[in-house]
């Protein structure tokens, strides 16, 4: 491994831990549920390494990744395709087992957290059930968790309205466009009101305007509910707009290059016009530099 690697690692770790140490100031008062005090560590990842045993050669999907995510954080993962963003989320969700390192979710192992339904996961593809209507796709988690029928329906309608799909309740997934299907899958993840949201490129398939609209909806939802969000995106603007911190990753092996704090320079309440502000531009520039640094390793 070249020396630059090690340097980047160290830098990333320092950045991560220094940023994580002072809890981000409470932006709005939390909804006052127990165990939701801001600053509590929700996800704690230490020296995580994950190697896939592919047929011919091992794939180093994640190498010595450390990151700590506090209650109320909005973390964006950004990086070139194949740098391990999905893999990192899947480890948090207990869908993938790390080769080494420690991961704690809500102070428990990822498996215990999963069994307690600690998080909602929006996959990179919609993963809707084609034999269920849109509404019944959204009620699926509630059905599994034993919510009464009437409440299931109210909650599904509420979430569908949030993602702008009122009137599509009785349609089947194949009657919807790709972007609409993805919005159904977001509504489904929100339906059971998890405290931690893992979202893998949820807006990747959407047009600019819908995307802006949903970004606004998401940032408002996050501010109102103080959910902890981990969000994967390829859009620098989206990452800067939504996040309290941006994690820039780099491939082969997948690792953290830089962790950029946005909460310090951008106001907690975000409207679309902050994208024109110099602070916004400065952060976006730093993200871009990080991404370019990651790409230069490929040559």
């Amino acid at each position: 491994m070249p020396a630059a690697h090690t340097a980047a690692h160290t830098a990333a770790h320092t950045a991560t831990h220094t940023v994580a140490a002072p809890p981000p100031a409470p932006l709005v008062e939390a909804e006052g549920e127990p165990g939701r005090e801001p600053g509590r560590t929700i996800v704690d990842i230490r020296h995580l390494t994950l190697t896939y045993q592919a047929a011919d050669h091992p794939v180093y999907a994640l190498s010595d990744v450390s990151l700590s995510i506090a209650q109320g954080d909005f973390i964006s993962l950004i990086g070139p395709s194949g740098c391990g963003k999905t893999t990192l989320m899947r480890v948090i969700a207990d869908l993938e087992q790390p080769s080494s390192g420690d991961v704690l979710v809500n102070g428990m192992t990822p498996e215990q957290a999963r069994l307690k339904r600690a998080y909602g996961y929006v996959f990179q593809a919609p993963a809707l059930y084609p034999w269920r209507t849109v509404e019944r796709n959204v009620t699926l988690p509630l059905e599994i968790m034993g919510t009464p029928r009437a409440e299931r329906q109210t909650r599904a309608r509420e979430q569908l309205e949030r993602v702008g799909l009122t009137g599509f309740e009785r349609k089947f997934p194949w009657q919807l466009s790709g972007g609409m299907q993805q919005r159904v899958s977001i509504a489904r993840a929100l339906a059971f009101n998890p405290d931690l949201l893992l979202m893998d490129e949820p807006f990747g398939a959407l047009d600019e305007i819908t995307r802006d609209h949903l970004n606004l909806q998401l940032t408002q939802l996050w501010r109102r509910t103080r959910k902890t969000c981990v969000f994967v995106t390829h859009s620098i603007a989206e990452a800067v707009f939504l996040s309290t911190r941006i994690v820039v990753m780099s491939p082969r092996p997948g690792r953290i290059l830089d962790v950029i704090d946005c909460a310090r320079d951008l106001p907690p309440e975000r409207t679309l016009d902050i994208r024109e502000s110099p602070e916004f531009q400065r952060i976006a520039h730093r993200v871009r530099e990080g991404l370019m640094e990651g790409h230069s390793y490929d040559d």
């Binding site: 909602g120 996961y121 993963a127 699926l140 599994i144």
Partner: peptide, 21 residues
């Protein structure tokens, strides 16, 4: 689809529920 099976896992659905639903 493997992703829909993963989804059931994230809901920590039991094997009977995964089967039925």
């Amino acid at each position: 689809d493997p992703l829909t099976l993963d989804l059931m896992r994230t809901y920590s659905a039991g094997s009977a529920q995964t089967f039925r639903l």
